[in-house]
Design a protein around this nucleic acid. Structure first.
Length: 581
RNA sequence: CGGGGUGUAGCUCAGCUUGGCUAGAGCGCUGCGUUUGGGACGCAGAAGUCGAAGGUUCGAAUCCUUUCACCCCGACCA
């Protein structure tokens, strides 16, 4: 490819609506342009990278037994109503009414359509297992798109759906996908960690998330200091904290007037106390309308997923004002644990609360708090409807199985789920087994964010001059930069080398623009082509060209007739570093 | 959806507080010349419904009202 024929609008200045490095560099390098909030145009250079990534994904998916299909991105709302996800997905689900008044969904993922295929085409265990995948645009009407293509409304995703007759078979494909994902991220040249994850909206029984560690990531992963265990923060288990030394003859509880302070913050300020001296009492309502109370320490956050687990999978959400006032006989902000167990279906108490020697809580009376509350003395820590458990988010300083928990931010680039029969049951995707008995297919689903791989590669691969691509996903492998565009010999040598490299299958771009050397060097660095060959009159006098890796500071001088060979060696070397062979 | 901020040339921004000459700068763009190994220099030039609508005023980029878009923090989210 000749640069002069390619649309590569690089810019010097940083566009003001870009904050994270990947977003800034993608704009500056002319890879993308914004069309509207959260929607981006991929220009030729950017799209070349997208294509390289999708090609890696396609190869590995095929190798792992996947079959590529293409599903519609506009899907009937009725299909989504069958699984209830039209409601579960909430506002994030993009939709529109067509001219016939039919409601349509803009696909954010495609479990329903995949299951539809199984409904109609899978009849027998003999057809299983099967693994269908597609690489296509997805749309999610994000409340707040941000960080460029890291959280955009429209994005390219590889999504795969597998169907099975048995749990073992599902597990086998799940592991095949798990391993294929490792290969894919390795080949794409991004560092990744695998963590246990929550299934969230998807539902199902097991999930792993593939995350690229980086400071600008939106996800927080938690891992033990020996790195033996890692998981998503929503899932992170924590050890019970040591019980504080009980205070000998702790004073009796005492009501204190705390007018018009309700939040932890204002109570602390008012009483000159620290959040960790308070107990936060939260009133929740389960999906089947049971009222429950949840107690966590003032400086902790309750974890809804953990509570849901304790409720045998029943979801819950914060109760409304009316319910709270009824249960606590006080305005919101003054709930406390004393006497609460009789009024609610269940009380969940976090280990850290049970471990407190003495605490401040709400008084279940508007405008009052209580101090000198001793857990176990003033409210029960056991009983029919009282459970002490791990129900909060992990924080700095926590341990798991005695090992310190560490936190790291990351970008989620892929996730694998065991869905089980959630979708097949609801949609009637059944098969007949050897005995002619009907069962719902067991399903797995597996997603990869293509654009996120691209952005995370840049987040972890750049310097002050621009992008430093892994060679496998760089827009080009090699760039030839002639320095003196009106020196015939220079241009001729550059052009010959270009043809030579093209001939042997190197993905090479020839910067044939009539620009000054400095401009071309800056652009080449900005775009981040891994290997650059500089052709200039200076070196040519001695029959040499300069070959330089983008990531290295120094270049090497190579004899003119050996340059082709040397470049091929370097390309090979860079690929070997990635594959580890 | 709550809080904050910004909309002036293709990009980055000044001008707005305190209304008043023809609305500016740098970068980019076009032409000519000189340059030519790390974002060159000179000269000439094109380029703007000052986000939109309404209002106040003799006069509005500037003040008021409404509205739209975008960005940031939060909530939410694969």
């Amino acid at each position: 490819m000749k640069w002069s024929k390619l649309l590569v609008p690089t810019i010097k200045e940083v566009p003001n609506d870009a904050e994270v490095p990947s977003h800034q560099l993608m704009l500056r390098a002319g890879l993308i342009r914004k069309l509207a909030s959260g929607t981006y145009i991929y220009l030729p250079m950017g799209f070349r990278t997208i294509r390289k990534i999708t090609e890696i994904v396609r190869q590995e998916m095929d190798a792992a037994g996947g079959q590529e299909v293409l599903m519609p991105s506009v899907q009937p709302m009725e299909l989504w109503a069958q699984t209830g996800r039209n409601v579960d997905y909430g506002e994030t689900l993009g939709h529109f009414t067509d001219r016939h008044g039919r409601e349509n969904v803009l696909s954010p993922t495609a479990e329903e359509v995949a299951t539809f295929i199984a409904c109609h085409e899978i009849k027998s265990y003999k057809q299983l297992p099967i693994n269908l995948y597609q690489i296509s645009f997805k749309f999610r009407d994000e409340f707040r798109p941000r960080f460029g293509v890291l959280r955009s409304r429209e994005f390219t995703m590889k999504d795969a759906y597998s169907f099975h007759a048995s749990e073992e078979c599902l597990h086998e494909t799940y592991m095949d996908m798990y391993n294929a994902y490792c290969k894919i991220f390795q080949l794409a040249g991004v560092e990744y960690v695998i963590v246990e994850a929550e299934t969230g909206e998807m539902g199902g029984s097991g999930s792993h998330q593939f995350t690229v560690p980086c400071e600008t990531g939106e996800d927080v992963i938690v891992y033990t200091e020996d790195s033996k265990y890692a998981c998503n923060i929503e899932k992170a288990p924590v050890d019970a904290v040591a019980k504080a030394e009980p205070i000998a003859d702790a004073p009796a509880i005492e009501e204190i007037r705390t007018p018009s302070v309700g939040s932890i913050e204002t109570v602390c300020e008012f009483l000159k106390a620290k959040p960790q001296e308070l107990i936060k009492t939260l009133i929740y309502k389960t999906v089947d309308d049971e009222v429950i109370a949840v107690l966590v320490r003032g400086d902790n956050e309750m974890n809804p997923e953990k509570v849901t687990q304790l409720l045998n999978g029943k979801g819950c959400e914060l109760a409304n004002e009316e319910t709270i006032e009824k249960v606590t006989s006080a305005k919101v902000g003054f709930a406390g644990p004393i006497g609460l167990a009789e009024k609610v279906a269940k009380v969940f108490i976090d280990h850290s609360v049970a471990a407190m020697a003495i605490a401040i809580t709400g008084a279940n009376k508007s405008g009052y708090h209580v101090k000198n509350v001793v857990p176990g003395r003033d409210f029960a820590l056991e009983g029919d409807n009282v459970v002490v458990a791990d129900i909060r988010n992990a924080v700095e300083g926590d341990t798991f199985e005695g090992k310190k928990l560490l936190f790291k931010r990351g970008i989620e680039v892929g996730q694998v789920f065991k869905l089980g029969a959630k979708y097949s049951k609801k949609m009637g995707a059944n098969f007949l087994d050897e005995n002619g008995k009907q069962y719902p297919c067991l399903m797995g689903c597996y997603g990869i964010g293509i654009n996120r791989i691209m952005a995370s590669a840049i987040e972890n691969g750049h310097d002050e001059n621009g992008i430093i691509w892994p060679i496998s996903i760089a827009p080009f492998e090699v760039i030839i930069t002639p320095v003196n565009h009106n020196d015939e010999e220079v241009m001729q040598v550059a052009n010959d080398l270009y043809n030579e490299l093209k001939e042997v299958g190197v993905d090479v771009i020839f910067d044939d623009r009539p620009a000054r050397g400095g401009v071309k060097f800056k652009d080449a660095d900005l775009i981040g082509i891994p290997i650059r060959v500089t052709v200039g009159g200076r070196g040519l006098k001695e029959g040499k060209l300069e070959v330089k890796m983008r990531r290295e500071a120094e270049s090497e001088n190579v004899d003119l007739d050996e340059v082709g060979l040397r470049v091929c060696q370097m390309v090979e070397q860079l690929y070997k570093e990635i594959t580890g062979e």
